[in-house]
Simulated assay, not measured.
Amino acid sequence: MGSSSSSRLFSTLAQSLSSAPLPHGLTHTQTDTEECEFEQADPEALLHECEEVLRNRPPRPHRDFIRTRASTPLNPQIRIMQWNILAQALGEGKDGFVRCPMEALNWAERKYLILEEILTYRPDVLCLQEVDHYYDTFQPLLSRVGYQGSFCPKPCSPCLDVRDNNGPDGCALFFSRQRFELLGTSHLRLSAMMLKTNQVAIVATLRCRDTGRTFCVAVTHLKARSGWEAFRSAQGSHLLQQLRVICSQQGQHSEGVPLVVCGDFNAEPDEEVYRRFLASPLQLESAYRTLSSDGNTEPLFTSWKIRPSGESRATLDYVWYSRLGFSVDAVLSMPSEEQIGPDRLPSYHYPSDHLSLVCDLSFIQEPHRLM
């Protein structure tokens, strides 16, 4: 599958994009506040360009939004997107997807699959993990379509062990500049058992321009692999402690401001870290439980892959929200096994081994705002 037209979208960014990776010493603090100087681009036009590049690939799985309640004009929705996009260096050099052709992982086209997914759902807040092309791809391009971003790399990213890597992977958080004002950003290195770990988180405090309401949003990626359940639980506990402090500092009331936490937790719902979040004093709820008939069950999977060790289908990704601060208006449905296909993920029609999670939230009206 050639990509003869795959330079069209990025030709408009040729002044700033480079195929060379950033020096490994460059950190997020040097570029977090930088904004692209390009004119605003039309997201719909860029989406069409992505579709043109990908015209020879199978279409992405169709997914419908399942509405849970009616929103009101006085309480606008906030669309949240959570996605582990699969670091390019790991996909090509470490993860060993035995049923995925290497051609399907070619960055020259795979980046368009990622961008097509983002531009299709047009989230107001975008939370990503395994981002190793932040500075040369996502930050400049998403800035052009109205997003402001922040990136926190892993201190010892496994991407750096791969030849010809593009630098460390990490978490990235983007938000619509039109919808929100940034009040503050914290970059956290998670601890476990009194030790600093290789996992990180970003916490942004945003003020909604439509409603004047303030909330915090966090993105994280916990330790992977079986056998590390206690470690993940400790990381989750540390993150919850930090979130409680940050939210309380921003709020005018003792309970603090509402919170959204997105992440690849690398943990099934029966793990302790999941139970910690569900029982947290922050009163968090998982948005995707609203898809179940009982409202208490997560999807059957958010990741489905085949490696040399065998096939793995697991629920690892979550969008947590303050149940006293937000209501869930709609949730993007999960694709079927038939849509995913027998070779699982990633594939020619889907760029990551994790599915994106997308939900529409709205603020619960505070009593004094109803008067």
Rank of each mutant, 00 (worst) to 15 (best):
S4A: 15
S11V: 04
L13A: 07
S16H: 09
T29E: 15
T29A: 15
D32P: 05
E35I: 09
E35P: 01
C36I: 14
E37L: 13
F38K: 07
A45T: 15
P58D: 14
R60E: 13
R60N: 02
D64E: 14
A70I: 07
S71P: 04
I80R: 02
I80W: 04
N84R: 05
I85R: 01
L86T: 04
G91F: 01
G91D: 07
E103R: 11
A104L: 04
A108P: 02
R110Y: 02
E116I: 02
E117F: 01
Q129S: 14
V131W: 06
V131K: 01
D136G: 10
F138R: 01
Q139W: 05
Q139C: 07
Q139S: 12
L141T: 12
V145D: 04
G146C: 10
S150E: 04
P153Q: 09
P153H: 07
P155S: 04
S157D: 03
V162H: 02
N165F: 09
G167W: 01
P168N: 03
G170H: 09
L173G: 10
L182V: 12
L183K: 15
L188S: 05
M193C: 14
M194D: 15
L195R: 15
V200Q: 07
V203T: 15
T205G: 12
L206M: 09
L206I: 04
L206Q: 02
C208G: 08
C208S: 14
R209C: 10
R209Q: 12
D210A: 12
V217F: 04
T220E: 02
H221G: 02
R225H: 10
S226D: 11
F231V: 15
F231W: 14
Q235Y: 06
Q242V: 03
V245T: 14
S248N: 13
G251Q: 12
G251T: 14
G251L: 10
Q252W: 07
H253G: 08
S254M: 12
P258D: 11
P258S: 12
V261K: 01
V261R: 03
G263N: 07
D264T: 07
F265N: 03
N266Y: 09
A267M: 08
E268S: 11
E268N: 01
E271P: 00
V273F: 10
L278G: 08
Q283F: 05
L284H: 03
A287L: 08
T290L: 10
S293Y: 05
T297Y: 00
F301V: 03
R307G: 08
E311K: 06
S312N: 00
D317V: 11
D317Q: 06
S322R: 05
G325S: 01
F326M: 05
S327W: 02
D329S: 13
A330F: 06
A330E: 00
V331Y: 00
S333Q: 08
R344C: 14
P346D: 00
P351A: 00
S352M: 00
H354S: 10
V358T: 11
D360M: 09
S362K: 03
I364G: 01
Q365T: 13
E366R: 13
H368D: 12
H368Y: 10
M371F: 09
